[in-house]
Design a protein around this nucleic acid. Structure first.
Lengths: 414, 414
DNA sequence: CCCATATGTTTGGCCCCGCAACAAATCGGC
DNA sequence: GCCGATTTGTTGCGGGGCCAAACATATGGG
């Protein structure tokens, strides 16, 4: 109830400022580069048409991006009519390359990704669900990252580092407030990672579900769908929200902590202390419970066990998945009512289960939402699967250069 | 599951376009005018400092707004130091005036409001809860509006009309999809209102809760708080969401339909067909139920009856309010988890009840949210009370001129 | 009364974009 | 194979919009 604290950031702090001409140039460079990054190679004439700017302006913008080493022009595509052919403009993956890191519940992963979404290399390694200290985990990541960084093409410049963590994260400085499923509490992941890697760059740290949403919006099933929700089912449930093409983070970046929303006041006790949290009814634990897998064995193998039984036609397993799906759907229906998304993407745990879950999820969602959810929103399996958060971390790191291509003072490699 | 329909608006349609120089000017004019509109009279030097633009640019912008009749310069305030005094710039309410209309469950209201939030005049009239046809209601509104419009100062130009409806509304054309508590279904309120008023202008129609949120964000308890949720309790519950200073509307404008989110799978039957909807547990109906007021009598008098009893110290009434408050709090906790707002504003029904509700609401919210909600978000009574949606309708209509001050070709009155 | 200070005002210049004329590259028809 | 039509890259010019600096103006203090 500390009013002055909560309402800090009112008024002048938040109000938009005026904008000068240089800001306009930055905006246009960023918009152009973002298009190329997301939509791939495009002819100059097409860029002129879709960006709504003059030919000469587009030429000038491309020239600047090219001199920064971020894009290059190639031969025109097979011509489709009369007129002078228009050269194809493409992003250069080595013009801006980032390191992406993911701290997930059951694994850690590292990738080097360049502009345009080109993945140079990628590694994933299991991680014991038992509590492992942040230091040890960072060491593991650094060990994985080293060869990837060394094998980058000689011209490539590392412009950023992005990391996803299965926990509540403060974006401004990469401080992980709470990651129950990693056993971490108040860990400055950003700082630790940058020093652990021996790199002097700031690390952008974000929540795994938020990054999954970003990745699916940019390159997954939700490519270009401006209103979507990504649900990450690991040990718990997290939601990442894209609203009107932008990540919805909330006041402190904690938005989307949907796992502990109440869906069943008479439900099971959750480890958060409350009863009937969504993830208690629709999470991994519930799956184990309904499938009759003893909770003590709960851990890495639950999903594989249930999947194997379901594929073998085991009725109990199928019923367990359906029950989880129903509760999952109920929660999704609530989210649909509140966010009115076009698409709900199921990732993590739910990705492999999707085939078995789908029907029950739609049924559950129908119970909770005003209209048949199929009329309002589609529910789909993740397009990037396990790697969605990792790719999201890459996109997060790349966003910096895209937002201000000329920001770094550099005339490009060669 | 009509994929192509749902994902329409992908790609090029939604991607931002390039921006030319004139757009920059529009942006700066809009930013300046918005500041004045929200923060009131400000000295030129202060504008220069806070907008981050050059003195000469500010002077030029103010000159343009003045020649449009939207602002005027007055004498400097009592000087606070050496140096040449800086004139005070103020909005001119007669420079842009709008008509605001509210179609609420128990009343209709009309107001004339000018730039800067000046209310020229305002009327509210009860409306029987019994089903009244849209035509009759529009007639009622037109009858109320006529004298208000005639009594505007001679120079005032009516630049817009805004309307709030307690129902699901499509913004683009003011079509009311469903307003259960008005008994309306598929009503083109926008068109009907503009012809009913005999005015040729387009009417901006929006959901009541969305407008309440806008009003509280601009001029109420949430002034300048960029992340807030407004809860409108009338017959049902609706939520209006401001995220990062902008209304959050969802893909089709249906976001915030929180009344029918599921909070109690074993709860009471809701008129929507489902069981345990939030508004069934925390709405007006629940209040009547718990207070022992027969449902058949349910209607206009519930709130007054319960309030009177509570103020007299009636234990049953107080307990009923507390029970409603608890369920209200549970739902609020869910919203806090999902949106991470700084502030939750209680309007409509909950505004007069706030004093009696507050404690139970906090307790309920604590049950459902990860951390003590007081640490993350404040819960407060509406600052504008009953009139919040009406004022929101005015702000909505005024937003048009603010967003593009030079848009209408006019050199100003005199 | 004069100076320091802050701010309005004016002028010139720069950045960025659009426009129009010209050049280049391709297609199709003869 | 040449020539016109078509489309698009290129170049030079001009205008809109903002900034910086010099100058003018209004106030407070010694």
């Amino acid at each position: 109830m500390n009013r002055t604290q909560i309402t800090a950031g009112r008024d002048a702090h938040h109000r938009p400022r005026g904008v000068a001409a240089e800001e306009l140039r930055r905006h246009n460079l960023a918009t152009l580069l973002e298009r190329l990054h997301l939509l791939g190679p495009t002819s100059r004439s097409e860029l002129t048409a879709t960006m709504g700017l003059n030919r000469s302006t587009i030429a000038d913008l491309i020239g600047e991006l090219a001199s920064l080493g971020l894009v290059e022009e190639g031969p025109a595509q097979a011509s489709s009519g009369p007129g002078r052919p228009s050269p194809t403009v493409s992003t250069r993956p080595d013009g801006a390359t980032v390191l992406a890191v993911e701290f997930s519940v059951d694994s850690v992963a590292v990738a080097t990704v360049g502009l345009g979404g080109h993945v140079f290399a990628q590694v994933r390694e299991p991680r014991p669900r038992a509590r492992v200290s942040p230091d040890k985990t960072i060491e593991q990541v650094a060990r994985l990252a080293r060869p990837l960084l060394e094998s980058l093409p000689s011209g490539a410049s590392l412009t950023g580092i992005g990391a996803g963590v299965a926990g509540v994260t403060r974006r401004s400085d990469g401080f992980v407030h709470l990651a129950p499923n990693l056993g971490w509490h108040n860990v400055p992941v950003g700082e630790m990672l940058s020093s652990g890697l021996g790199l002097d760059q700031q690390v952008l740290v974000a929540n795994e579900a938020d990054l999954g949403a970003l990745a699916e919006y940019r390159r997954g099933v939700g490519a270009g769908v401006p209103h979507l929700i990504y649900l990450s089912g690991e040990a718990g449930i997290g939601a990442g929200i894209i609203h009107d093409g932008k990540p919805m983070l909330g006041a402190a970046g904690y938005a989307g902590e949907a796992g502990h929303t109440l869906v069943n006041p008479d439900g099971h006790k959750c480890r958060c202390g409350a009863k009937g949290c969504w993830e208690t009814e629709a999470g991994e634990e519930a799956l184990a419970r309904h499938a009759g897998i003893p909770e003590t064995v709960a851990g890495v193998g639950i999903l594989d066990t249930v999947m194997a039984r379901a594929e073998a036609g085991d009725e109990t397993a199928l019923a367990a998945i359906a029950e989880v799906g129903r509760w999952l759907g109920l929660g999704i229906g609530n989210l649909i009512n509140v966010f009115n998304p076009q698409l709900v993407v199921l990732g993590g745990l739910y990705h492999p289960l999707f085939h078995f879950l789908e029907k029950a999820v739609y049924e559950g969602a129908r119970l909770a939402s005003l209209e048949a959810p199929g009329d309002v929103a589609e529910i789909a399996a993740s397009g990037l699967g396990l790697d969605a958060p990792l790719m999201g971390a890459a996109e997060l790191a790349l966003s910096e250069i895209i937002a201000d291509p000329a920001g770094r003072r550099q005339t490009g490699p060669g």
